[in-house]
Design a protein around this nucleic acid. Sequence first.
DNA 1: CTACAAGCTCAAGCGACTTGAGGAGCAAGC
DNA 2: GCTTGCTCCTCAAGTCGCTTGAGCTTGTAG
Lengths: 137, 137
Amino acid sequence: MSTALSIGEAARRSGCTVATNRFYEEVGLIPEAERTAGGRRVFTRPGIERLKLVRRLRSMEFGIAAIKELLTAMRGAGTCLDVRDIAETQLQIVRARRAKIDALERTLSGLAGDCTLMCAESPSSECTIIDNLSRTA
Amino acid sequence: MSTALSIGEAARRSGCTVATNRFYEEVGLIPEAERTAGGRRVFTRPGIERLKLVRRLRSMEFGIAAIKELLTAMRGAGTCLDVRDIAETQLQIVRARRAKIDALERTLSGLAGDCTLMCAESPSSECTIIDNLSRTA
DNA sequence: CTACAAGCTCAAGCGACTTGAGGAGCAAGC
DNA sequence: GCTTGCTCCTCAAGTCGCTTGAGCTTGTAG
């Protein structure tokens, strides 16, 4: 029992807020924490590691359901390939989002740039952005 | 009254679903539609154009509040520069998201690639992804 | 002993929709 | 005229990943 940490400490060390921590327990991403006599959650090192792992997966935009799958595959009979499949799926999603964002950035910077060129010296209500938006498919 | 369209037709022509169409009305992105004697919404060409404009703005990831601002700036006394400011703000947001997605894609493809190399021939439960995730900060 | 921080639970809110239940309108075929 | 079946209506709740708030208890330092 050397390292019995409060939820606040766990939050500080894992990088998620106290509220998020409780939320993860509620939805089953981490096991239900042990409690003190007074009813407070107690965290130990493995619990913190689990929290960090969940945070890392979330930062990679894995959804909660996908993280559950991953954790199951890790603990259970799943092989590395099961895990990799989940990662690959996620990669496809991220790549698609990246492509969309790229196109988006080009469109937006084009619009804003045009406007800067055309309207900066003579601000009017006949905006090039509005023109562009109204015409472009 | 040459072009009096049902909500279904409006949806088909504007590219948003019937439900989304009603939702946009509810939150005030489009004006409340006129109704037939029977209580059904009636759309005309300007209404469809407005819907398309909203769709285009949403596809550029403008939030509903930002679209309202834009529409107000367009109809009201706002100048082109007001509109451009909103677009620039959006561009900053999109660029930040792009940077995050880029990093994410590199991380994920690294993980999945490693796994393919290491585990493809000998699927085990000692997954390189899991190893990586457990160690990486 | 008394503050006061930090913990607890439960409930609701966010954004942008989607989904579902339960009913009404309306054109076409019989 | 009547029924079939599609479209439409409203209202309510669900989605995702949290965050925020109210109102209470626990633990600790002075």
